[in-house]
Amino acid sequence: MSRVAAIDCGTNSIRLLIADADQGALTDVVRLMRVVRLGEGVDATGRFSDAALERTLAATREYAELIEQHDAGRIRFVATSATRDAANREVFFDGVRELLGVEPEVISGDEEASLSFQGAASVLSLDQADNLLVVDLGGGSTEFVMGNADGVTAARSMNMGCVRFTEKFLSTDPPTASEIAMAVGSARELIHSASIDVPLSQATALVGVAGSVTTITAHALGLEEYSSEAIHGTELPQQLTADACTDLLTMPRSVRGELPYMHPGRVDVIGAGALIWRTIIDELAERTNGRIASTITSEHDILDGIALSIASSERR
């Protein structure tokens, strides 16, 4: 058994998992998330802002202290969509190296998709014939990953996420009908592009991961507080999930902020996340002729995949 530390730095949040890994299974020691909005404005400027860098490095410093406190032997720091797009990313990398003593990795969309699938599939029962579609809906990108018990069979990462779509389309509170229509049109185009590489019509089950999807599930369940235990593994009728998406999309931000399971850092972007997830559900229903009647939510995602990848490299 070994103790590993995985850090997933995305467009909206930075997350830490310190876990004990034993023969492909993980036991959590610490699991944390901080909303730092690293990708704020990157789509428009192509650069990280000073404020975003300060927030993210402050969270990284906190994580470095926890990693030392819990004596994790191996660390992997993975950065995704926003960092791929930023011209001044070396400034960020220098800070990470200084704080953690490891080389930060900017992974490709394909590797991001693979790690997301590994994390989600690690806690699901997969039949050999299943075509499981895992959708990782992030702040700057969304990964579509098809796979089965043998691993990933097809994957595509698209520049479609809750922060990116909020900044690009949904400027009004609540969004107008024309803003919603433009965003849905763009999402449908990107889903179509993804379907060129990922055969969405062959999917036999749909699993959603990451903060937008888990928050939507909490809303659909009407939770009195955010509960990973209540959310993880939940299977809901597609219509119930779609209705929860519509509710969050059209709700004023002030009302969203009062929801007991809503993280403050998601209040302004969950509408776009809900729009994207609803559009994916609608597209999949059309492409599979209604064969998939439910959505499954997993709290295990790319973060778990990163931790598993460290443990796997140690065994080789």
Rank of each mutant, 00 (worst) to 15 (best):
S141K: 02
S141A: 11
E143A: 09
N148M: 00
A154Q: 03
A154N: 02
S157H: 02
S157F: 02
N159M: 12
D173R: 04
P174G: 03
T176F: 04
S178A: 13
A181Y: 00
A194I: 06
A194C: 09
S195V: 07
S195N: 10
I196P: 00
V198I: 07
P199Q: 08
S201P: 00
A203P: 00
A203F: 05
T204R: 03
A205F: 00
V207Q: 02
G208H: 04
G208S: 12
V209A: 11
V209E: 08
A210K: 00
S212I: 02
T215K: 00
T215N: 06
A218D: 11
H219V: 07
A220H: 08
L221H: 09
L223H: 06
E224Q: 15
S227M: 11
S228H: 13
S228F: 04
A230K: 13
G233M: 09
E235T: 15
P237I: 05
P237Q: 09
Q238Y: 08
A242H: 12
A242P: 00
D243W: 01
C245S: 10
L248T: 05
L248G: 06
L248D: 10
L249C: 12
P264V: 10
G265M: 13
G265H: 06
V267A: 10
V267N: 03
I270A: 08
I270M: 12
I270R: 09
